[in-house]
Design a protein around this nucleic acid. Structure first.
Lengths: 116, 116
DNA sequence: GTCTTATATTGACAAACGTCGATGTACCGG
DNA sequence: CCGGTACATCGACGTTTGTCAATATAAGAC
């Protein structure tokens, strides 16, 4: 073991040494990983993309099963994951369920990534 | 799929309107999901964070096993995943292997997210 | 009421994942 | 040479994931 002092957050008075930043805590890493895991599937990314591209930024399930080429239960499953992760909202009108983007949700994750 | 032609034109537009933007292709979604999957694990996020916070933005495995509290093979496994995904580089000096951040790799993914 | 349509839920399955212990490989000091 | 250290790889394990067919629910249409 090399035993360098990695963990102290700040080193006073060093001018040329690169700054030692605070590292990600276990709890923060857990929630951030959960947010990214919901996005780490090609089908879910495409679903988000289709919803984002739709007029009014909302789409019903019947408009999504075709483009992604998967069964309706599978698409509903992915939509639920995206909803639980806070990327989509669901609005039921009549027989149809309309999924819409949560404004700023993707941007928030995008900015989170820059803080790692 | 809904039978749109049986509905009045004004109502049909509310559900099955054509997409206004270009949606994510299958191949793009696949590679983007792979980039995100490498980041969707709390241990890997912490490893990246520790390397980023280290002086000189590099750290050897012996400096990483302690903070994340996992076995050395497991840490090596995660580091390999981060390397294969293009987030880390490995430089062997003597007996030690130094992992360093690939500059801009995280920012690139961060910006990719904004395009979904 | 019944029938049809749109969506959610369940159950099952194979594949992928995270983790560990054991082992292999490479390097350095005696 | 031999021993020890740092790291990678292998094999096995329980868990999670993505997918589908079957079923359930809910809301019009008739």
């Amino acid at each position: 073991m090399r035993n360098t002092e990695l963990l102290p957050a700040t080193v006073a008075g060093s001018c040329c040494a690169p700054p030692m930043r605070k590292t990600l805590g276990a709890k923060d890493a857990e929630s951030m990983a959960a947010a990214l895991k919901a996005l780490s599937d090609p089908t879910r990314l495409r679903l988000l993309s289709i919803v984002a591209a739709a007029a009014g930024q909302e789409a019903c399930v019947c408009d999504l099963t075709g483009p992604v080429g998967l069964s309706q239960p599978t698409v509903s499953h992915h939509l639920k994951i995206l909803m639980d992760a806070g990327y989509l909202t669901r609005t039921k009108r009549g027989t149809w369920a309309y999924y819409a983007l949560v404004p700023g949700a993707l941007d928030r994750v995008s900015q989170l990534l820059a803080t790692v």
